[in-house]
Write a protein that binds this DNA or RNA. Structure first.
Lengths: 221, 221
DNA sequence: CTACGGCACAAACCTACGTATAGCTCGCAC
DNA sequence: GTGCGAGCTATACGTAGGTTTGTGCCGTAG
């Protein structure tokens, strides 16, 4: 409740803007723009370069010229998605067309700006993108602990967890798995302990966050 | 498990494509195209017209020329959003620009096609849009029953529900609300009955679906 | 005034949950 | 083999959850 400082430190820690543009003057202009509002910047001149760099550990976004030497901006977007890197992307283009724009936006781009780009538009877009990334990271972090604890469960404990979280009583779980009720109770206790759940409600929310399928679970209309 | 037919009947019931275009020949061409693949069609010539019509009760999508007499396609999109109508929109345009495209896509459009539109592109977009609407309707329907049952709870029952769903024991709920434990138990039973929940897990999921705030509830990392 | 519904509580009773202690088998690593 | 952990069970005991039946107060709609 009172650890705001710690939490902000953990999930923020100075956002960074990543720029990919083959035009040195553009890189310089963008770098200056972002630094003028106190943002950290890292600039690259090609898609290959940024793919070699390690993905940032802080809230960040990508400012990407759609026309790049070698792989285009859209290709890079696809590559990053394939590599499970979800840094929000802002495209800039001098002569883009509508199909290209649609494709980029459908693939999750946060914005698509046309040159000449107004400084304020760019800053607004970057602000929104970083905010989005921060939220995504927070959400990711909040379930990563749950996920790792789940990994620590034995196979049988997971079986029991799935059925308990779907609302079955211990005796029903036992019948379903061919066990004695007492066995289920013991596993159940171990599950609560290992998962760090302080109540059944906690446990249910954890399993839902993990996307564990419910063997029996209905919210009937 | 075996009621595919029933379910399809309940949530589908023949999708419909709504067309808004001031060009009669375009309306005719699109109408023919969609009817050729067995889709129902309703065509309008202006934004005002479709706003007067009642929103469809079946999975549907909107095919919208961005340039319309009176209110533009983007205006109509905003009006529909304001009216809480979430029919997916596919834009078509003869001379749209990129900022317009970005604005439409950010506002939730499923696609943005440029004239001349290839039939297959249009059909693909419509298919995707209708599928999206079908999913949205299914989700909406599945919580509407829960929501209406929640409306039937008394003020006190809602208090108890919030605390129970956040994982507190009856005695803790009682202390929090200044009640006797037995009173909480009785309310709890009434809640389960009124909400149609067969287990605490059910109840927790319902409250989460309803977005009921948790007075005490932590998924600590 | 009377009836009704919401709110609150109590005693009694039953079921479900949870833990502790103890004991068993099996497979695997040392 | 010895030890270890997973898996499984039993007895016993205490706590939490849940229903029934009955009581009473309050406000309001008829």
């Amino acid at each position: 409740m009172t650890d705001h400082a710690k939490q902000a430190e953990g999930s923020a820690g100075d956002p960074i803007v990543l720029i990919v543009d083959d035009d040195p003057s553009m890189r310089r202009a963008l770098t200056n723009l972002f630094q003028s509002v106190g943002l950290k910047v890292e600039a690259f001149s090609s898609a290959a370069e940024i793919l070699e760099a390690k993905p940032p550990a802080v809230p960040s976004c990508l400012v990407l010229d759609i026309r790049l030497p070698g792989a285009s901006g859209l290709d890079l977007q696809a590559d990053l998605a394939k590599a499970n890197i979800h840094t929000p992307i802002i495209f800039i283009t001098g002569h883009g067309d509508i199909p290209m724009t649609v494709r980029a936006m459908k693939s999750g781009a946060v914005d698509f700006l046309t040159k000449p780009v107004r400084d304020q538009d760019m800053l607004d877009a970057v602000q929104a993108a970083i905010e989005r990334d921060r939220k995504r990271r927070d959400a990711e972090k909040s379930i990563s602990g749950v996920r790792s604890r789940f990994e620590g469960l034995t196979a049988r404990e997971r079986d029991v967890l799935a059925l308990v979280a779907s609302g079955l009583m211990n005796k029903q779980v036992a019948a379903e798995l061919g066990l004695a009720e007492i066995t289920v109770k013991i596993y159940r206790g171990q599950i609560m302990r290992k998962m760090g759940a302080k109540s059944l409600a906690d446990l249910v929310r954890m399993t839902d966050a993990l996307g564990i399928p419910r063997n029996r679970g209905h919210l009937q209309t």
